[in-house]
Nucleic acid binder design. Structure first.
Lengths: 240, 240
DNA sequence: AAAGCGCACTAACCTAGATTAAGCCCTTGT
DNA sequence: ACAAGGGCTTAATCTAGGTTAGTGCGCTTT
């Protein structure tokens, strides 16, 4: 993610694009602006006319949809370095919310236009990020559609660990995670109650624990094998 | 879709891009080539190095993923005028298969490159198509994650009817549909057996029938209301 | 014409996960 | 200091959908 993020910064600094609006300035380059949100804030909802590309620079974000009956489903979690923009707020009526304190870099304007007008390195980076998001969502669909609750939950924890690039210490991985069990439920297509049960199972089976905001996976490889987790959908392959 | 398709054709005819490879030629313009597949053929699988944008010009196509245990899930159905390319075969390891006899227009090469090099009207059309596909997939996730089997199934039938632009005759809609119950199951995250049960229910409830390749919805509006179907995710909004 | 196969259909039974309904611990606000 | 609310936890019960195990029909193939 880190390298990725740097690419975006360079693309922005070099770029024609200067994000406008009333934002807080940060850093040396006057073209780099950030927007800051608190946990729970809505960053974008489908109705709004505020179209933009969002580049997450710190914090956790969820993109999802609300149903008429009050239920919610989370399509994807966005971590630092990730981008959201095409087909998110506009057509899909997605709702983007901050799960923790978040800073976001915003490229205002219709994403389509941005993409077409942007200098090549930027649009290329944006497209790659979109493609990666698509891959995550495809895998997410597999989870919800065809995996059991335990497998599904473990899969998500593994995905997060990989995306955060946590390096295992003798097989063990630990990271902060601001998600509530309700968030997990909405992402996994389960009930919060059942998520709790599953978490208990994973804990008692010695696979992974999630307590007071910290995820701990005892043995990444064992768990990965157990739930048939294949991280290749997360990585950019060299040849592209 | 029809208008959409014309846009693509115009973009192609005007364009720098001339699809290469050993394809059958059709039509007056020597730059327009088509590839033809029979029902059941694999159009693209993740492993292949044959990257391309695919524009469906006739027939039904499914894009999905195969699991190691042999299960399959269908991410999205592609109908004439639809495009597939970004994040599909490359990262997501999706598998694209023909559900009926299909003709496809192919823009070979890495989709990212294509998009960035293509003349503006073409890349714009491609991006819109991608955004629309994303919106469909988001809605699909809602179905699988939070809707009951009947609601989910009816929702899919309605989506197909809308996308095919079938005009209702006094509320009733009829169209040919090459899907098997197993295809439906893989798209809905259900079992073929259960799909059968659901179809029976819809039939006996007087909502919709699907028999020998023909879908018939008795009263589109009633069914749409019944399952809270909101077609807006399928349409391009004017302001974009 | 028989065999084989893919697809639709059904019934009997079973389990994963939903629902309901508590109780508990913290944090936040008054 | 108390109340209120959000989040976690658990147990008891219920049900939607999965599993298994068929049947029958209409094709291709030989």
């Amino acid at each position: 993610m880190a390298g990725e993020f740097e690419d975006f910064l360079k693309a922005l600094e070099a770029g024609v694009l200067s994000p406008g609006g009333n934002r807080r300035m940060e850093g040396a380059n006057p073209n780099i602006w950030r927007r800051i949100y608190a946990a729970g804030d809505t960053i974008a909802d489908g109705d709004e006319n505020k179209q933009a590309f969002f580049l997450i620079s710190s914090g956790w974000v969820a993109s999802g949809k609300m149903l008429t009956n009050g239920a919610r489903i989370v399509l994807d979690f966005l971590l630092p370095g990730d981008v959201i923009g095409i087909g998110a707020t506009e057509w899909a009526r997605e709702i983007v919310t901050a799960l923790s304190p978040v800073t976001i870099m915003e490229l205002p304007g219709a994403p389509l236009e941005t993409l077409l007008k942007a200098p090549k390195p930027l649009s290329s980076a944006l497209l790659k990020s979109i493609a990666r998001r698509n891959a995550r969502i495809a895998e997410h669909m597999v989870s919800i559609g065809r995996r059991g609750a335990v497998e599904r939950t473990a899969h998500l924890l593994l995905e997060l660990a990989y995306r955060l690039e946590i390096k295992p210490e003798k097989g063990r991985v630990r990271f902060q995670c601001p998600l509530t069990q309700a968030d997990l439920a909405d992402a996994l297509g389960l009930t919060a109650v059942h998520v709790n049960r599953v978490l208990k199972e994973l804990r008692e089976g010695g696979f992974a624990s999630f307590r007071s905001g910290v995820v701990e996976i005892q043995d990444v490889l064992r768990l990965a094998e157990f739930v048939a987790f294949d991280a290749s959908y997360l990585a950019l392959r060299a040849a592209r």
